[in-house]
Simulated assay, not measured.
Amino acid sequence: MLIRRQNMDPVFTLATDLDGTFLGGSEMERQSLYNWIEMHRSVVELIFVTGRDLPFIEGACAEGIMPWPDFVVGDVGTTIAVHDWNTNRLTPDDALEAPIAALWGDGVADIQDHLDAAPGVEPQDVVFRHRMSYHYDPEHFDPATQKVIEAAGFDCLISDNRFLDILPKGVSKGPSLLRLLEARGRARDAVLVAGDTLNDLSLFETGLKGVAVGNSERGLLEKIAGRENVHVAQYHGAGGVLEAIDSFGFADTVARAIETEMEVPA
């Protein structure tokens, strides 16, 4: 087993969406990416930036479906959590989440009756902390519902043409990731973001180097067209992430770090 020296920063941070991205691609591509990360954990940092909640991530990691992350920006940016490597628990960072909780307040209580009666949206069967998420049916959705949500002071995010998220104003994956990176003192040019749907758009809007994997939805590709910081991959999911790690030179950066003995036995 290898560990990161506690007095040194990682030389590369992968901040990745899960569904369709880190969990996408073929089994061989996923294992290639996961094994590469685990082989270089002393110098590679892993952050999940996802719509998934902490219990889902803990369960998937405990089952060995994917590697444990160092940090999680979950619930579409409304949760920021730290992984305790001793207990394998993901714990929300109260200080980093404080501005998010303040913006959310009592949530959607004032417009709950409207949402309950709104066509084309069905609440997801999950308890969320600082957001509400719905299954979205574009054929029956009334655009007036989005206006009600925004008039109440929230952001309304529709992604993959099947999900609708109600978020605190100005909160999403990108801004929350930047808050975490700043708190940890991470160099922006050592970070790669990865995603595949419109709820990942804010990751690419940060200006960080990014990859839209080969199976990305058309709406996302239209929004990021012409962005020099974004690599549009040919390979799907994990294969696209590996493609970008190589394309941006991060594989070489990690290899040089290993060669200079930044890694030590645990």
Rank of each mutant, 00 (worst) to 15 (best):
M1A: 14
L2Y: 10
L2T: 10
L2K: 10
R5V: 12
M8R: 15
L14S: 02
T16N: 03
F22R: 00
L23H: 08
L23Y: 00
G24Q: 00
S26G: 08
S26E: 13
E27R: 10
M28N: 14
R30K: 08
S32Y: 07
N35P: 11
N35R: 13
E38L: 12
M39R: 07
M39T: 10
H40I: 10
R41G: 03
V44A: 04
V44L: 07
E45K: 09
L46M: 09
L54H: 08
F56E: 01
F56L: 06
E58P: 02
E63K: 15
P67N: 05
V73M: 06
D75T: 03
V76Y: 00
T79H: 02
V82G: 01
V82C: 09
D84Y: 05
T87N: 11
L90R: 01
P92D: 05
P92W: 05
D93S: 06
D94W: 10
A95C: 13
E97M: 12
A98S: 15
I100Y: 01
A102Q: 06
A109E: 14
A109Q: 09
A109P: 03
L115I: 05
A118E: 00
A118M: 08
V126R: 10
V127G: 10
F128V: 08
R131M: 06
S133Q: 08
S133T: 06
Y136D: 01
E139V: 15
T145R: 03
K147S: 13
A151G: 11
A152D: 05
L157V: 07
R162G: 10
L164F: 06
L164W: 04
D165V: 03
G170A: 09
P175R: 07
R179S: 06
R179E: 06
L180M: 08
E182D: 12
R186I: 07
A187G: 11
A187C: 13
V193I: 07
A194S: 10
D196V: 03
N199F: 07
S202K: 02
S202Q: 07
F204L: 04
L208W: 03
V213D: 02
G214L: 09
N215G: 10
E217Y: 15
L220E: 01
I224P: 00
R227E: 11
V230Q: 06
H231R: 02
H231D: 05
A233Y: 02
G237Q: 04
G237T: 06
A238Q: 04
A238Y: 01
F248K: 03
G249K: 09
G249S: 11
A251Y: 13
E259M: 13
T260Q: 14
M262W: 11
E263W: 04
E263P: 05
P265C: 12
